[in-house]
Design a protein around this nucleic acid. Structure first.
Lengths: 169, 169
DNA sequence: GCTTGTTTCTTAGTATGCTAAGATAATGCC
DNA sequence: GGCATTATCTTAGCATACTAAGAAACAAGC
């Protein structure tokens, strides 16, 4: 085994520097910190993901929603069944293409947007406390470049990834 | 709603810049890219997490292992049952404190270390392709600072987090 | 128009993680 | 020593995401 030199790329043993491990901690912390705030309104971490995307634009097909979130169609189907049972979305067959199911927010879910959306900013600024604007921008840039690198090896992520840093609305 | 100004902290609508979302993509890509390489040796993404930590040092209790990975004791218990059934670890009661179960790697798991550990470096350098050494170091630093910020709100992560960026071996 | 292939959604089964609640062992206080 | 508290592990049940396989609607070629 090579001699450990903490922080160097070639150091097999610098577990604490593993970018995948760090990403896991960040993802989990974000989810948990956010969920403690959204559960007051009955929204779980899993529901949040779909609602957030739908707030951006609803009336899209399940497949399109999956694509935007880099999720499998099967995952989306199960999640939307839950959201529908919770009266947060309603689904109807697209008359133009009856294979598709279009997803619409209910009035209740629409109202939640105003209450819950600020949570995004709150958690973001909490996570970047002590960061200069430049550091925050650098972090996003480096993370996005890393995603682009990984997308080459993991084409599944490519779809969702690409539409993001190219500014898809 | 505020006017969207992409990339600015105050922009609620810059979903593509959500650090939690980016972390999710990174975590998932890492897991999948790595798993395609370790499955050849019969090691799943979930097993990898525990093996990687145990390669660093085995003969520790389940509770200590949980702490180092920021996992729940219950999660670790189930995972280790799987690893034991796969003959990758064996467990025995600590005679000094019979509440504890000490976890040891089997000879087979030890041999796997040499084969699989290079995968860590391969995936890391793949993810940071085109990064200067300085950029890679900056990324780790910013991610660790973000974890530290989040740990204040989510104490669970604190344990595993702390022992990492303070250089616990 | 019919067949063949593609797209979209669904179901079923699996993996990985969580919380809650319980069992057993150790520790501390009297 | 005996009893209450704490620590560790386990089980059970749930949430979230995956793959694989099938159903239904559409599209394309003949």
């Amino acid at each position: 085994m090579s001699k450990a030199q903490p922080g160097r790329k070639g150091d097999y043993w610098a577990f604490e520097d593993s970018l995948g491990y760090l990403a896991r901690l960040i993802f989990r912390s974000f989810s948990q910190v956010r969920e403690t705030r959204t559960l007051d309104h009955g929204i779980s971490a899993g529901q949040w993901t779909f609602l957030r995307q739908l707030w951006r634009g609803d009336g899209i097909s399940q497949h399109e929603l999956s694509r935007r979130l880099a999720m499998r169609d099967a995952t989306t189907a199960v999640a939307l069944r839950g959201l529908e049972e919770a009266s947060l979305v309603r689904r109807c067959v697209n008359p133009r293409d009856r294979r598709e199911t279009l997803v619409f927010l209910t009035p209740h879910a629409r109202r939640l947007r105003g209450l819950l959306f600020p949570v995004t900013e709150e958690v973001q600024s909490l996570a970047t406390r002590g960061f200069s604007d430049e550091e925050a921008a650098t972090l996003r840039d480096l993370m996005q470049r890393m995603i682009a690198n990984l997308a080459r090896e993991d084409p599944d992520i490519g779809e969702a990834g690409r539409c993001r840093w190219r500014g898809l609305r």
